[in-house]
Amino acid sequence: MAGSIALRHTAELTVQPRATTEPGIVRWLLISVALAFLVLFLFVPLIAVFVQALHKGLYAYLDALHQPDALAAIRLTLLTAAIAVPLNLIFGVAAAWAITKFEFVGKSLLITLIDVPFAVSPVISGLIFVLLFGLQGWLGPWLDNHDIKIIFAVPGIILATIFVTFPFVARELIPLMQEQGTEEEQAALVLGASGWQTFFRITLPNIKWGLLYGVILCNARAMGEFGAVSVVSGHIRGQTNTMPLYVEILYNEYSFAAAFAIASLLALLALVTLAAKSIVEWKAQQQLLADERSAMKESL
């Protein structure tokens, strides 16, 4: 009898956690499946990119990046991002501001429209621009008459990139600004601040981490976009090839080392983006915690 009592006692101690967790073996199995998947599909390819890029030596790697066409692709990608990201920053903030701080007719339609670039395939997005601005498109003849080239030229690439990356900033800001409400802005207005002062001194500081997060994602996509850009670019070497397009061309020509060299740059960009994203997320988390603490204090 004494034995069974002791047994029950220890059972009580261990049963409690066991009720809510799986047996050890299942846990380890799940963890290793997840890890194996990660290694196989994320880590190995990442290593492979760098190994392939460098397998002919560092000299060949640098040489591949120094080719005029490669430099042109890098330059075009940077130019595209440098135009698309700031514009989407402004559009995104304006859209989020309008949606969260004002009541107007057609608001829900606007919210839906912002999601369109996410909803449609990037190839379709590119095709829309070809249909609009291409020679056979609606505006094509007029543009041709005025000697303006959009499709198969840099403006088309920038337009397509802006379209595809539009939702990032707005999507990031809308829930954040909705949660923050409009009371602080109202307080600023009562105190005599102008609309711009209210925006720059109150709204912007409150959304800065969310905004930065959206910009980082927007930038990553702007530099990495393939589908939409591929349709409108025309793949003219040294002129309308962005980095992702150039990688494909090199690959199709069996210049694997060069293809992977360019790809390694994109991979590096991804890593930097991830790091920046984690830092920003951490910072935003800190702010959120501070807000929550204050909310808790309020309820006390």
Binding site: E184, A187, L189, V190, A193, S194, N206
Partner: peptide
């Protein structure tokens, strides 16, 4: 408009500038 009225307004949830 609200800025010109020279009123002091204290909001129910204070609306202090958190930053």
């Amino acid at each position: 408009n609200v800025g010109e009225r020279r009123v002091g307004f204290v909001f129910q949830h204070y609306a202090l500038f958190r930053h």
